[in-house]
Amino acid sequence: MDTSLLFSGFIFGLSIGSIYFLMAIGLSLCFGLMRVISLDQLLYYSVGAYIAYSVSLATGSFGLGLIAAVAVGGVVSLAIERMVFRRIYERDLTFSMITSFGVLLGGVGVIKFFWGLVPRPVPLPFSAQVDLLGTDVPAYRLLVVAVAAAVYIGIWLFLNRTVTGKAIRAGIESVEHVEGLGINVARLFTTTFVIAGTLSALAGALHAPLIMVDPHMGLEVLAFVFMVVIIGGLGSIKGTLVSAFIVGQVVSIGSLIYAPLAQVAPFVIMLLILLVKPTGLYGSALLKK
């Protein structure tokens, strides 16, 4: 196969993987700390994309759209945390999964109400091509990868260098012990949830110019995001990074070989990994509820 084609496929995979990573990391943190599966992250993804669409359409600046998307994503996830999740942390996983699906479904309804059913295109903020190792690569895709890398570094620093981050890591091991030290876990939960919601909105806004925004876009990435989380292992940040990379590459390289493979190949990879390790690559068997 043509190397330049393969290389641009690699970059394509990296950018897709970056989007998945941004979403999966929030899901993974929420699971690790609060033991909830927050399907509504997919709503913040759609909300982010729609806000980016509307704001960049109104102001002509995609940068503003991006900022607005992140802000709105944060506010919406804060509201949902306060109104819904606060009441269900104590319950088992099934409960959070169904409730958050209700939130997701309702949110899709609200999006349909405001923006209608028609898919909307978001123009690329810049269509420049960058020459990388002799291959022309869309600069925007590189930006997406750079943002994801920055977020990874930011999250890493947050978790390892700030005391709140350390409390989150400690809470992933045992919430009860963190509480026993006098640390306000309710606030810790809210912080984590809003970080997750914000990152999902960022992912949606970044993804918007690469696809069309439509009310069901959250449901379309759902399977891939969850495959990333499952392959990496629920609750593991490092696992999420590795598996986002794998899934991105499998989707991209798979589609180069045979287009429909892009959708099915990651699933097969996931099954194979689960066959060997039922808790994912970096998932700990200890995390039980």
Binding site: M227, I230, L234, F267, P278, K288
Partner: peptide
């Protein structure tokens, strides 16, 4: 063999994969 949380998520992924399978791969 999976823990119940993984079971729920894997099944969810399966449903979406079957959707793509029927919509695109086996078109």
């Amino acid at each position: 063999r999976l823990r119940s949380d993984y079971f729920a998520l894997v099944n969810l992924a399966l449903a979406v994969i079957v959707f793509y399978l029927m919509q695109k791969v086996l078109a």
